Structures are given as C-alpha cells and as structure tokens.
Simulated assay, not measured.
Amino acid sequence: MNATISIPSYRDVCAQRRLVLVDIENAARGATTSPDHVQTLRAEISHTLHLGAWDQIIVGCSHYSLLSAKLGWPTARFVVRSGPDGADLALLAELAQIDTSRFAELALVSGDHLFAPAVAAAGIPTTVLSHRTSLSRELRLAANRIRLLSTNHPAAA
C-alpha cells in the first residue's frame, strides 16, 4: 500500500493565506481581560473569519494584557506597546514591515480609525471585524468587507 502525501506549493498556500491583525483590547473592549475572555473572543474571531492553519495571526496588546492574551491565544504571534493607542501602533509598525503581496487577504480585528490609511493601502482585499459601536467611519470606508463581532461580550473586567 503506497500512500502519497500531497504538499501544497508555495503559490497554492499564498493563494489562500491571510494576514490577520487582532487588536485584542479593542475586541475585548478594554485594556485588561482574562484568558477565558480572550479564548471566547478567539473562538468568535476564528469562526467568523474562518481562520485556517495557513493564516498568519498577529495580536497587538499592551503589557497589561499580554499574559491574559498569550494564555487565551497561545498560537498567535504578539506585538506589544503600551500607552495611548499602543496596540494599534504596534500592529501598524508590524504591518509596515510585511510584504502584503504574499497574502490573499488582510483581516483586521479592530474598529480604530488609525488603521484606515494602512487598510486602504494594503493592495489586497481587506476584511474588518469590529463591534458596531466602535467601527470608525474611516475604517468602514477603507475596507472591502465589514463583519461585526457579537455584542454579547461583556466589557473586560
């Protein structure tokens, strides 16, 4: 019995691979949260965006949220920056270093207006996943597609 294993080519992987940027504090509606809350958000984000094994997931947060975020989403890569708009600025700095042409799509989990210019300039289709009440007009206009997070999540404790 000869079983052959098919390994997808780099071109095939890139045709499906997404870059997923998650502002976990925006999704959690607060700077600090519990690992359980992050797990709940991760499950909703994964389900809504249909995250796959090839997707590159980068989570931005402040140092206050890092431990809970890492425990709640252990497979993600993290960028950390504190202060006003810290997670946003960390994610934007990371995005500026990435060749987005290697991806089929950019997915952003945030509603912050600071991302609008980067989303508009990404050069690939973009999906924004946000709470309805925190989705900025600028980001809504810059994205190709908008998806909404559930409003059932409590604010972070």
Rank of each mutant, 00 (worst) to 15 (best):
S136H: 06
A87M: 07
A3Y: 07
G83W: 00
A156V: 07
L95F: 05
A90F: 09
I24Y: 06
V13Y: 03
G83C: 06
L92F: 15
T133S: 09
A96P: 07
A15F: 05
H47A: 07
V22M: 02
L21M: 15
D88V: 14
D99F: 08
A31D: 12
L71M: 15
A69E: 03
R145T: 14
A53P: 10
V59F: 00
F103S: 00
D85W: 11
A143L: 10
A107I: 03
S34W: 00
H50F: 01
L141D: 13
R18N: 10
L91H: 11
S65T: 13
A121P: 06
T126H: 08
W73P: 01
S68V: 07
T126W: 01
A121I: 02
L106H: 06
A120H: 10
R29I: 02
S150T: 15
R81C: 05
P154K: 10
R140T: 04
R137N: 11
D85K: 14
G30N: 04
V59L: 01
A27W: 05
A122P: 04
L71A: 14
R18C: 04
A156K: 13
W73I: 01
F78G: 02
S68N: 13
I146K: 12
A3F: 14
A96L: 08
R77Y: 01
I98W: 00
P35K: 04
G83A: 06
S68R: 05
H50L: 04
V13D: 01
H50C: 06
C61E: 06
A142Y: 03
F78Y: 15
N26Q: 12
R18Q: 10
G111V: 03
T151L: 05
D112R: 14
V128L: 11
D12Q: 15
I24F: 11
L21H: 10
A104P: 00
T33H: 07
A27E: 04
S150Q: 11
I45L: 07
R18V: 05
L135C: 12
N144W: 02
A107W: 03
R29C: 11
T133F: 04
G83L: 04
L149Y: 03
I24A: 08
I24Q: 00
G123Y: 09
S65M: 14
I146M: 09
S110L: 01
E138L: 13
A28K: 12
G52M: 00
L106C: 07
A93L: 12
H63I: 02
A142Q: 07
R102S: 14
A93Y: 02
V59Q: 00
T151P: 01
T75M: 10
L95I: 09
R42T: 10
A90G: 05
Y64M: 09
A107K: 05
V59R: 00
G52Y: 00
D36N: 06
K70A: 15
A116L: 10
N26I: 06
A142G: 12
